[in-house]
Design a protein around this nucleic acid. Structure first.
Lengths: 337, 337
DNA sequence: TTACCTCCCTACAACGTTGTAACCTGCGTT
DNA sequence: AACGCAGGTTACAACGTTGTAGGGAGGTAA
């Protein structure tokens, strides 16, 4: 079907290796020969068979990105950044969805499908610290997220505790005292929920505000519906509050909607802050004050680090934990003062 | 590094072909031999080298999906459905972003990177009818979107005209007469904007409502900001309207926000309808009435059609245009009556 | 002239897999 | 006893590419 080196070689009247040399810009080829070959390539519309090339080289020119679900805006935006950065490096991205399911994540790490790629950027959600051993794989791996921290694996993520502390400090500075938290996970210590809650508690303590467990609403997932339900639960509980910290933007947006439907004004009656700085945070009503955790930097850094390891695992040195800078994106739902 | 058939064969004391036969469930292998081989496989942790297998078979087990930008919710949700369906078929998905840029789209169609895949699901946004010839590629292709219609290429998409007509009819039935349209593209005939506008005009005509060009706001892109800007422009123009048809949900949400900020009540003063039925349509305030154009069906059908063509291009028969069913998802921003 | 070096090019093997053809063994049939 | 056949296994080639080694032609230096 498609033309091969052999076809080009035959047409140009040279050996296949010469054609290969032309394609790979090997210097010692006579200009006349080079031109002959290039004419033949053009005539046949030859393009190299990457599979064969990969078999020879042991590289595929592709990396895998595993995320829970692209329908979640956070991961969609992450994937967009990863793909863009990979393209800059001439590498292509294969996207896998795990649904944040522990078993599927564990299975994926061993999947022969990864053989189509040179390495994996892995955003774990279902696995936990006890699964750290499963990360000891024989291919280049960069870990995202905060479900597992292990010094033996490269890891790029955000400063969850610091950023969450800053979010709560921001609310406190603006005069709020009763801050509800949406999206906590019962008993979790490591993980986005646990870490962000920890940051929240640290900020309370630093400000001398006693912690009221009644103000915490737990959810299993972090979808809008969960945020909405959690807020309904808080309102039903009848506990008073003057601010809400959604542990991510989606939760915050869902909660904000219920708040408004219930007649509360945002931010007058209740200030709302989120976490992630999704595109949509800018366009909600009111627009959502949130923490920008440096997602783009994370994506770029993860790709670069993975490519380093692929290029030369030894030269890449020991595994690193790299943390993004964060900032508060101040918008209407929680004005500064 | 990784174990190969040779290693397994040596350990098991058989030929590599026998190992290959065991792996591929070739029937004529003595149980004792089979077991010996399987033990060796387990011991070495052997997994097949897919690149080599692909080189032999001419298949890669991967398909490519090209979309403008994963950060756009519509395409993120599309990709999520495509990946899920592909996984069901044991196929992996490589995602490319074109930014909706015509040149990048044309380049992608010829890119040797596609050699890593067996076929392409291509969501064109920048190319137009005049580029139809570029779709005559030598690999299996399924086209999405409505920028190009060509009988010689497989195409899965939505009933834009019918669905848009239904949206406008819905507004008219609920008593609205002055319907603003957000997101039109100047002079476009084919393309989502052109087709949806056409459906809108058909509905107006059928209802005997004269068309007022003042009610149409043009935008280049379909982001929230564009919807917001377009609505500001309409308000500045001072033209009266009692309903808004956002040509997609993102535009509608952006527009709705500006409407509310300006003091209009939705839906009392102005009803708003969108198009796409994004997840977030359900959680805006008010929740967004919109057209569900059958995106999930489109994704599944596109994958299945592509796999048919990959399996046997001849048996797949002549190219088909397949259109999804649509429905109006009735929510708060535009009640039925 | 001889020796050597550089430039240009080629033959061959190899990457890891699977299809093809063929081989050997043992059994049942004639 | 000779034959055929099926089951179980193997050697070999091939997929399309690139690295290695080497060969021939021509130039330069001794």
């Amino acid at each position: 079907m498609a033309a091969t080196l052999h076809d080009v070689a035959r047409l140009a009247g040279v050996s296949i290796k010469t054609v290969s040399n032309v394609i790979n810009d090997y210097p010692h080829v006579r200009p006349a020969t080079r031109e002959k070959v290039q004419t033949a390539i053009a005539e046949l519309g030859y393009t190299p068979n990457l599979t064969a090339r990969n078999l020879r080289s042991g590289r595929t020119g592709a990396i895998a990105l595993a995320v829970p679900d692209l329908a979640l805006s956070y991961f969609a935006e992450l994937a967009a950044h990863v793909i863009a950065e990979a393209e800059r490096a001439g590498v292509v991205v294969l996207v896998e969805q795990t649904d944040g399911d522990r078993d599927r994540e564990l299975e994926l790490l061993q999947s022969p499908r990864l053989k189509l790629t040179d390495g994996l950027i892995f955003s774990a959600l279902g696995m936990g610290q006890e699964d750290a051993a499963a990360l000891a794989v024989d291919y280049p791996l960069v870990l995202l997220g905060e479900r597992i921290f292990d010094p033996s694996v490269d890891h790029v993520t955000m400063r969850n505790v610091d950023a969450a502390r800053a979010a709560t400090e921001y609310l406190i500075t603006s005069g709020r005292r009763r801050i509800a938290v949406i999206g906590a996970h019962e008993g979790e210590v490591i993980g986005s929920a646990g870490l962000r809650l920890q940051g929240h508690l640290e900020a309370l303590e630093a400000a001398g505000i006693p912690f009221d467990p009644q103000l915490v609403a737990h959810t299993t997932l972090w979808h809008r519906a969960n945020g909405a339900n959690a807020m309904r639960e808080l309102l039903d509980r009848g506990v008073g509050f003057d601010a809400v910290f959604g542990l991510n933007d989606t939760l915050a947006l869902g909660a904000m909607r219920v708040l408004q439907v219930s007649g509360r004004r945002v931010p007058e009656d209740v200030a709302v802050i989120g976490f992630d700085d999704l595109d949509e945070a800018e366009y909600s009503i009111p627009s959502l004050t949130t923490v920008d955790p440096g997602q783009k930097w994370i994506a770029r850094t993860a790709v670069q680090r993975l490519l380093e390891k692929i290029a030369d695992a030894d030269a890449a040195g020991t595994p690193r934990l790299q943390l993004a800078d964060f900032r508060i994106a101040e918008r209407e739902s929680a004005p500064a003062a």
